[in-house]
Nucleic acid binder design. Sequence first.
RNA 1: UGCCGGGUCGUCUAACGGUAGGACAGCGGCCUUUGGAGCCGUAUGCGGAGGUUCGAAUCCUCCCCCGGCAGCCA
Length: 566
Amino acid sequence: MNDNTINPSSESTPQNFINEIIDEHLRTNKYEGRVNTRFPPEPNGYLHIGHAKSICLNFGLAKQYNGTCNLRFDDTNPTKEEVEYVDSIKEDINWLGFNWGKTEYYASDYFAQLYDWAEQLILAGKAYVCELNAEQIRAYRGTLTEPGKESPYRNRSVEENLDLFRRMKAGEFTDGSKTLRAKIDMASPNVNMRDPVMYRILHQEHHRTGATWNIYPMYDWAHGQSDSIEKITHSICTLEFENHRPLYDWFVEQLGIHHPLQIEFARLNLSYTVMSKRKLLQLVEDGFVKSWDDPRMPTISGLRRRGYTPESIRAFTDKIGVARRDNVIDVALLENCIREDLNKKALRRMAVLNPVRVIIDNYTEGLIEELDAVNNPEDTNAGSRKIEFSRELFIEHDDFMENPVSQFHRLSPGKEVRLRYAYIIKCNSIEKDADGNITAIHCEFDPETKSGTGTSKKKVKGTIHWVSAHNAVSVEVNLYDRLFSVEDPQGDKVIDWKEFINKESLITLPACKVEPALKDAAAGDKFQFERLGYFCVDKDSKPGSPVFNRTVTLRDSWAKIEKKNG
RNA sequence: UGCCGGGUCGUCUAACGGUAGGACAGCGGCCUUUGGAGCCGUAUGCGGAGGUUCGAAUCCUCCCCCGGCAGCCA
């Protein structure tokens, strides 16, 4: 490479140890300079943010090196897999912005080839039909510190093995009565090499092959060969498969077929959540959340519904890097990514979550003024809009304090505050009901302080948002927060992880007041409610009555002050 | 106790024998008609002990700690 040559993708794309391996392969012309990866989900659940890391890695590498990335469904276990999951996985990958080309690959497409290879191993004396039951197999496997024992069926003749295996395939035997096992080494220090099961009998309909098969390949038998069939060069997976690599290597070597290189990386862990499919399934099934795409879930569909953008998730996966050490990413980084993206894109609107009525006593009754409001100060192309101002408004309950602390810069008795895009007002009195709740705040406005006129010499510390009462639209808002109240819900040996579920992870406010422009917002539309946070329209909203989901709050330095003051 | 892997700011992640840098979080400040955004500044780190070397996060030795593995799951 000459000095002027710059890898076009090397500037923006973060480098990691996998790039180094691939660069070395390219230098030595291993795999004829090809880079072919794959993303191989099992269709037994919804994809989560951890999968997003893998998706961005695999598709990203393909893009970076002008290679390909196959989407392959590892559908070798018909008892757990469903078409629903296949569809959701495709939708999520697409949404994330990746394209797998015309072909969708399925491990189930290789069942016949895998079967032939199994016979080949039997013929070579490298596989045998075992009649030990599951419990016995476990007992014979030995322990982590003790070698296993050889199965009594280990030394059958090739003819007998072939006959039995063909009859397994033909459906002559009951589930669990026999397995096909690789004949490797029962004393191997790597338990994966202790005659692993290759096939189990399962009289079960498969979502794609129907009732064709009575035996199904184990993942360990299917995965490496599937990669090999697809001529994958770099088979990237998570660390827990590291101990399986010698087995995958053994299979492809016995078969004499293309040998992909498996590279393992550390899976993503996120603070304040759980990531395993099993636990996510449990959250759904036990009703802790409403669905797989509940906005509190770390699933891709949940994040989407929460208001995350594909760009923000891709930026996140870039920032967390790829390495082999265990990691727990601070969820604050994810939140930072969506704020950063939405700050640039989201239109600003005013919304009052916990409304309290303000009456401007010296403002002409019935008068309505149109004021200019900027749609996005970060994006001049977003333009501006007109908002209507009148004598009665709603402001945020929290923006008024009857007995203000010293650092409180908003409305309080006798004090002034600016209404965003409008006037400076001063609080003169308050009305309360019998229970002492504030029902109205009486103010006067200063006509000289109209926003944008520059006629005011007044300076006030605070600016608050508001919605005019005469045309405010009432909407439902879901305030979402972290699903767990502790960083590591699984970190306690005694207390069950579900005990740490944040009971305030969802607060629904049925009657928030928003400006009329928001009435016809469509599902998925994203906004910044000024001073509050980013919100998006829930997908189940009815036309004309949007339900808003809070994606994330704005950074809140007031909250910090409050916290510091106890 | 077997095998495999891993330990760099609070959390992630760079450095590939030559000044330990970046991001997020934190703290302090500036600015502000969003207590937003932005800007500036700042503290904190090579698990430990030896060794090789002019020079070690990087190479060697020993130790300590953490993770994964005993499904007819993937």
